[in-house]
Simulated assay, not measured.
Amino acid sequence: MAEELHFGHAAQKLDMLPSALGRYIKLLEEDLGTRLLSRSTRNVSLTAHGALFLGDAKEIVAKADQLQQRFKKLARQNSGRLRIGAIDSATINLVPHVLHIFRERWPEVDIQIVEDKSSKLLPKLKSGRLDLIFIRPTDQMDDVLENQFLFYEDVVLAISDKHRLAQCGEIVVSDLENVPMIVPERRVRPHSYDLTLDLFDNASFKPRLVQIADEKQTIINMVAAELGAAIMPKWVTRMSALNVKFIPLAKEYINIRQKLPLSAVWVKDSRDETRDNMMAVVMQELEVISQQY
């Protein structure tokens, strides 16, 4: 209106009736407590206050447009990137499996993968450095996080192929009496540590614990060196393991399997179409993936 100085022309540009435009301007003037336009039967002109308001209003509108464009650009950038965090278990099969399918559908998306422990990935997710993580969920997840349980992993006993138990088809707890059990430090890998101790909950003897390694490949190497046995996730059978035999636990220990949950976690109420597309692939392929764990 300030540029046209004509109600009819200005209303036409704004795709509204001249009378409606006139009401909006009157309401604005009443709200500001001053006249912005000087009207007569033949022409319309800006008052002194109107000219002052016009300059400031143009600056505000320009900044609003810039802000809108800035965030539209950020949205486009974010839609082309997905930062995933995953524990070692997830990087073995789950992540490669879903990435293969995801890239076929959205080849333009830049995928970044960070492998770390659950305790290290959670802070990175909450600080915005990751968009989606695959972890062992904690007993009490933060309220700001969305936790989608995926499946439980099977467990096996890793033992030297020279040990008397190496010929067993399955293992029961009584077999492990007097067998040194290699476990990680609890503060480093709480799920792995508790997995071993929980197996002996109802045993008539206490396990012989040996805390000499935290990383799974190192533990397997210690098993190969006949320093003890280890209760481990089934996926470790895919790692290089000379002189090591992996034996399943007896079916009666199904509750032990539930000590190894795997979940997808992301920030609750955050809008991210790319992340949601990835989760759609995960849930679509979940039955196939879980059978490999």
Rank of each mutant, 00 (worst) to 15 (best):
M1N: 04
F7V: 00
H9G: 03
H9L: 13
A10S: 00
A10F: 02
Q12H: 02
Q12N: 04
Q12P: 00
Q12R: 02
L14D: 00
D15K: 14
M16S: 00
L17A: 02
P18R: 03
Y24M: 09
I25L: 00
K26F: 00
E30K: 04
D31F: 15
L32I: 02
G33F: 11
T34V: 08
R35M: 13
R35Y: 04
S40P: 08
S45A: 13
L46M: 13
T47M: 01
H49V: 07
G50D: 01
G55L: 15
A57Q: 03
V61A: 07
A64C: 10
D65M: 04
D65F: 11
L67V: 05
R70V: 08
L74T: 04
L74G: 06
R81M: 05
A86W: 01
L94E: 13
P96N: 00
H97E: 05
H100K: 14
H100C: 14
E104A: 06
I111R: 01
I111Q: 01
Q112F: 10
V114K: 12
E115S: 11
E115W: 02
D116T: 04
D116L: 13
D116N: 13
K117N: 02
S119E: 10
L121C: 04
S127P: 11
R129N: 05
L132V: 01
I135N: 13
T138M: 03
Q140N: 12
D142M: 08
D143Q: 06
V144F: 03
V144C: 11
L145Q: 00
L145W: 02
F149Y: 05
L150H: 09
F151H: 07
Y152P: 04
D154F: 15
V156Y: 03
A158W: 07
I159Y: 06
K162F: 12
H163I: 01
R164A: 12
A166N: 08
C168L: 14
E170Q: 10
V172N: 09
V173T: 02
D175C: 08
E177N: 09
E177G: 12
E177V: 11
V179Q: 09
V179I: 10
V179T: 07
R187C: 09
R187Q: 09
P190R: 15
P190C: 07
L197I: 10
F200E: 00
D201A: 09
A203R: 03
R208L: 14
L209T: 03
A213R: 04
A213M: 05
K216E: 10
I220K: 07
I220F: 04
N221P: 11
A230G: 05
A230I: 08
A230Q: 07
M232T: 09
T237Y: 11
T237S: 06
M239H: 06
A241H: 04
K245N: 14
F246D: 03
I247L: 04
P248H: 00
A250M: 08
K251A: 14
E252P: 01
K259I: 02
V267Y: 02
K268G: 12
D269S: 13
D269Q: 12
S270W: 07
R271S: 14
D276Q: 05
M278F: 11
A280C: 06
A280G: 10
A280S: 13
V281S: 15
M283H: 12
E285D: 08
E287L: 13
Y293V: 05
